[in-house]
Design a protein around this nucleic acid. Structure first.
Lengths: 228, 228
DNA sequence: CGTACCTTTGATGTGAATCAAGAGTAGTGG
DNA sequence: CCACTACTCTTGATTCACATCAAAGGTACG
């Protein structure tokens, strides 16, 4: 007689990484999985901490960021439900190169390294999934480097808006910023002041309509063409 | 009676990826491996090209770079013998996000995707090696992002010199730049003019002695402490 | 309903890019 | 071997995009 599925088990099963995994493997992973309740502002790990596994977000938002010497920080990524992070660090003996902090209340899973490694040894599909995920990560990072080094503040913001709108395929779009403009600014490697000014300038040009965290883009192709 | 080892086979066997692989697997990979002779300036692949496998350098140097709209470019990486690249792109259906160009005469291996994937299905250690390699790549890219977004031109150059010197563990060091200052400048996201000026300024401060591509660092800890 | 943080707006500062020109330095071919 | 051509590197003057500093609303939440 099967036990009822725990919500933990359901959460684990719905991970992209675990798709196609049979129930037995899920059970094995479950033994290395803990659930974490997240309070706003809570630090999941600091830069320099050793890795004991990877995380997957169930509810809420988490940022990955680099501390700067003057107490500031540079946000690398803003992540939401279903996304996972910390995989790469498991495969090296190096500590975390970034820190992770909850932007909101929420919940996350922590899957232990040893249990995952054991599962990977049994099921080669897991390794393949892992490789696919890390390739995506690498690809996105390269795009970020491209943006930081080759594009202006305005171009970075436009690219960000277009990406959030799901490309310039549609005629128009409504974009909802995932978090505060201060955090978005850091993600785009801008100061809040500069973000505000660029937003204003795009507004004046009639390319976007801003109301708080909600942005209307009446003409996506026009916005995309706004800067070559 | 065993055939004599081809130089191709020797090159393949000495790859970090192939260490611990038995002779049979090497043989299998060999069937998907081609050797390329590289002329200076030759393009191995362009941004946007589809991936058919990955590369490993035997002799010479290769740069990975992003094209910029005004005909310029941003160098992401300068690689030498023993290093490989293009692994991550194989695991996605996306085209190359960068282009690869030979900086010097040389030779490289191209290992086909299909043959590698088949080998990975047979030997789980290959996948593990791949994951380890890509983790390193990811880690290095994050350090680059950190440098680009959080550090000044001077700090980036100092960090680069220290890295080339193998950390600040020794008292002094002789650093040989791997290629022209123009390319190094791009790698550090600087203009050649700025690199020249920063080099000059460090020179004046007595922290380094420059002669062409050769740089003497009389006091590594002092150089490391030069900018907080 | 007040306190703390976000966001905007303006004035000013600055690090590095750009523009411009000259001085090596190195490959090429006569 | 030398002259020719083409980079590469340096040095100086100027410009510019964005940061910094400063201060005044807004907004949200305890």
């Amino acid at each position: 007689m099967p036990e009822p599925l725990s919500h933990l088990q359901i959460a684990l099963t719905s991970l992209p990484l675990c798709r196609q995994l049979d129930a037995l493997e899920i059970q094995a992973l479950l033994r290395g999985t803990r659930e974490l309740a997240l309070r706003r502002g809570e630090i999941l790990f600091s830069k320099g901490d050793p890795s004991t596994g990877f995380f997957s977000i169930i509810r809420g938002q988490i940022k990955l960021a680099l501390p700067s010497q003057q107490g500031g920080e540079k946000v690398l990524e803003i992540m939401g439900p279903g996304q996972s992070f910390g995989e790469a660090v498991m495969f090296m003996d190096a500590p975390y190169p970034v820190f992770a902090q909850a932007l909101t209340e929420g919940a996350a899973l922590h899957i232990s390294k040893s249990v995952l490694f054991a599962a990977m040894a049994r099921d080669p599909r897991l390794a393949r999934k892992m490789l696919a995920g890390m390739s995506m990560r690498l690809h996105n990072l390269i795009q970020d480097v491209e943006a930081y080094t080759l594009q202006s503040a305005r171009q970075r913001l436009v690219a960000y808006l277009l990406q959030r709108a799901g490309g310039a395929a549609q005629a128009s779009a409504e974009v909802q910023l995932p978090t505060s403009k201060t955090v978005i600014a850091s993600r785009l490697n801008l100061t809040p002041e500069t973000l505000s000014r660029v937003l204003h300038s795009l507004s004046e040009a009639g390319l976007i309509v801003v109301r708080g965290r909600h942005i209307r883009v009446p003409d996506l192709p026009k916005l995309a063409a706004a800067d070559a």
